[in-house]
C-alpha cells in the first residue's frame, strides 16, 4: 500500500545488457583527473552519509551528563554499556523484534502470493473487466495509505482487526506497485509454454505454480525487497493499529519509548542502535543481491 513505483513505469523497452556499464574512460591507463575528483567526491559523500549514524552509535555509550555536555565530546570519555543494559531492560527488544519479523515476513509472503496471482491473470488471460481492474490498480499506485487513513481505520475497526497483527499484515498486502511490476514482467514470458502445458493437461493453477512463478523469480525478488523495506519501516499505520505493547512493531515501540518522560536520551540512542543492527547485518549479507536485484528486476 505504499506508493513507491519501480523504474519500470516509464522504462522504455531498452535492449542493453544491464550488467555492463562501460561508458567510462577508465580503460587501463592511469586514472585521469576526472576519475580522481569523482572518487574523492564519492568517498567524501559516503562519509557524510554514514557519519551521523556512527556518531549516534558512539554517543549511545556516553553517560547522561556527558551527552548534555557543551562543547560535546566526539568519543565517549568513559564509555559505558549501562545505556544498553538499562535501556534493554525497560524495552522489550526481542518481543518487538519478533512482532516486526512476523509482520514483515507474513505481509511479504501474502503480498507475493496475491500480487503474483493477480498479475498472472492480468497479463495472461483475456477476460471481461481486465482492463478496468488494471487501470484501477494503476491509478491507486498514487494513493498513499496516509490520505485514506481514517476510513481504512474504520474498516479494520469494523472487522475487529484493530490491535492485532492481522490489522498490520492484511490491509497493506495488496500493493498496486507489486501487481504492476509483476504484470509487466509476466507479459514478457512466452505464451507458448503455457499453451503447451495446457495441451499436456496441466491445470490452470499448476501452470501458475510450476511455470510462471519460477520464471518470474527476478521480479518476485524485487517485490519482496520493496515489501520488506516498506513493512519493516512502516510507522503511521502500526502507530494507530497496534495499541497494546503486545502487538507493537519496532518503529512504534521506539517512538513510544522515545517520548516517555522517564527515559533518558542516551538510553533511547542505545535502543535505536540495537534496532538498526539486524537490518544492516541482513543487508550486508545480501547487499549484492539486493542492489543488483533492484537494478535488474525493475528494468526487464
Amino acid at each position: 500500500m505504499s506508493a513507491q513505483t519501480p523504474s519500470t513505469l516509464a522504462q522504455r523497452s531498452g535492449s542493453a545488457n544491464p550488467q555492463q556499464p562501460k561508458w567510462t574512460s577508465t580503460g587501463g591507463s592511469a586514472p585521469s583527473t576526472g576519475a580522481v575528483v569523482r572518487a574523492t567526491l564519492l568517498i567524501a559523500g559516503a562519509i557524510l552519509v554514514v557519519t551521523p549514524v556512527l556518531w549516534a552509535a558512539m554517543s549511545s555509550f556516553k553517560t547522561q551528563a556527558e551527552l548534555a555536555q557543551t562543547p560535546p565530546t566526539l568519543w565517549p570519555n568513559h564509555p559505558t554499556a549501562d545505556n544498553y543494559t538499562s535501556g534493554l531492560q525497560a524495552f522489550d527488544f526481542v518481543h518487538f523484534l519478533t512482532n516486526s519479523i512476523i509482520v514483515t515476513v507474513s505481509a511479504t509472503v501474502l503480498t507475493l502470493i496475491i500480487n503474483s496471482m493477480a498479475a498472472y491473470a492480468l497479463s495472461k488471460y483475456n477476460f471481461r473487466g481486465r482492463t478496468v481492474l488494471f487501470l484501477i490498480t494503476l491509478s491507486t499506485i498514487m494513493i498513499p495509505l496516509q490520505v485514506i487513513l481514517l476510513p481504512v481505520y474504520q474498516v479494520i475497526a469494523s472487522f475487529g482487526m484493530v490491535n492485532s497483527l492481522w490489522g498490520l499484515i492484511i490491509p497493506p498486502a495488496a500493493t498496486p506497485t507489486g501487481v504492476f511490476l509483476l504484470r509487466q514482467y509476466m507479459l514478457s514470458l512466452p505464451d507458448e509454454m503455457i499453451e503447451a502445458a495446457r495441451i499436456d493437461g496441466a491445470g490452470e493453477f499448476k501452470i501458475f505454480l510450476r511455470i510462471i512463478l519460477p520464471l518470474s523469480r527476478p521480479a518476485l525478488a524485487v517485490v519482496a525487497i520493496f515489501s520488506v523495506i516498506w513493512r519493516w519501516n512502516d510507522f503511521l499505520w502500526p502507530l494507530i493499529v497496534a495499541q497494546d505493547e503486545s502487538v507493537q512493531t519496532l518503529p512504534v515501540a521506539i517512538a513510544r519509548f522515545a517520548s516517555q518522560q522517564a527515559i533518558p536520551f542516551n538510553q533511547i540512542l542505545a535502543v535505536s542502535v540495537v534496532t538498526i543492527l539486524p537490518i544492516i547485518v541482513i543487508f550486508l549479507f545480501l547487499q549484492r543481491h539486493i542492489i543488483a536485484g533492484l537494478a535488474q528486476g525493475s528494468i526487464k
Binding site: P21, W23, T24, T26, R38, A39, L42, I43, G45, A46, V49, V50, P52, V53, A56, I229, W232, N233, F235, L250, P251, I254, A255, A258, I268, L269, S272, T275, I276, I279, I280, F283, L284, Q287, R288, I291
Partner: peptide
C-alpha cells in the same frame, strides 16, 4: 562509472534507506 570500491560505496549510500524513519529522526 566508479569501478573500484563500488560495492562498499553503494552500501554506504544505501544505509539510510534501511533505517526506520523514526530512528532517523532520533539520530
Amino acid at each position: 562509472s566508479q569501478r573500484r570500491g563500488r560495492g562498499a560505496l553503494s552500501a554506504a549510500y544505501f544505509l539510510p534507506v534501511l533505517i526506520s524513519p523514526v530512528v532517523v529522526g532520533i539520530i
